[in-house]
Design a protein around this nucleic acid. Structure first.
Length: 258
DNA sequence: ATGGCAATGTTTCATTGA
């Protein structure tokens, strides 16, 4: 089966592209980030017509996450947010799909290392680590997928010198990301040989994509039980091409049957 | 075989993203 994560940067704008991608790629489970839609405006019907059930948790203008699952897969225990962490922003949704615990995340951007938003990001990461510890204790087959807004090391940065110490690349952020791995998760992308300079986000400005000036900040983390089932992990950079792309490309893992 | 920000609401500019 295919599990994917994609920051769509407005589901309203990206819906035609999402539907085309669902038809061509046929993912089984999809975590969406930055839907930017109130729940009442979620495009449930076109997604259902494409063959997917959807659970979602959104707000106007900012943030918003969703989990789509192929219609024939069982979905249970849907939860929104991080228990015990008060947060108005809609950034986390979890569900058990076909026996796999899936947590979709949209980690705060952090804006700049000297900003309040950066402190919020680090606190948010700590709360997420606590949540994942509890989730893993209950569900050995755990996948955490989405936009983590951290490039884990310099291989994940087009220009490590220019980005050194900047938001998305700073050492405290990287430590916060590693703290998630320490819960008992692996970055699926690094389980396999990968091409140099593979990224998941490119700035809309300054020819970011044509020049491949990108960062790898979207990830699928897997528990050991799912690492054992994982046969591939890749980034679909084709989805960054063409008319009205999101600035993020989808990340995908393939899992063989248990 | 890509192209020089995009999306949103507070809308003809300001804010946010990464």
């Amino acid at each position: 089966m295919i599990l994917a994560a994609w920051n769509v940067n407005s589901l309203n704008i990206r819906l035609p592209r999402l539907l085309a991608w669902l038809a061509s790629t046929k993912p089984d489970i999809v975590c969406l980030q930055e839907t930017k839609l109130e729940d009442a405006k979620f495009p449930l019907q076109p997604i259902a017509d494409a063959g997917y059930a959807a659970h979602y948790c959104g707000q106007k203008t900012y943030n918003g996450v969703a989990i789509l699952a192929r219609r024939d897969l069982a979905i249970a225990d849907v939860r929104m947010g991080i228990e015990g962490f008060a947060d108005e922003q809609k950034r986390v949704i979890a569900a058990t799909v076909a026996g796999i615990r899936v947590v979709g995340v949209y980690v705060p951007n952090g804006q700049a290392v000297d900003s309040d938003k950066y402190q919020y990001k680090l606190a948010w990461y700590a709360a997420l680590a606590d949540m994942l510890r509890a989730e893993l204790a209950r569900h050995p087959e755990l996948a955490v997928a989405g936009d983590f807004n951290v490039a884990p090391d310099d291989r994940d940065v087009h220009d490590p010198v220019a980005w050194a110490g900047q938001v998305l690349c700073s050492e405290p952020e990287r430590a916060a990301f590693r703290a998630l791995l320490d819960v008992g998760l692996k970055d699926s992308f690094r389980l396999f040989e990968q091409p140099e300079k593979t990224f998941s986000w490119w700035d809309y400005r300054m020819l970011g994509f044509p020049k491949n000036h990108g960062l790898r900040i979207d990830h699928v983390l897997l528990s050991d039980a799912l690492v054992a089932r994982c046969t591939a992990s890749r980034i679909d950079r084709n989805m960054r091409k063409g008319e009205k792309p999101s600035d993020h490309a989808p990340v995908l893992v393939e899992l063989r049957d248990a």
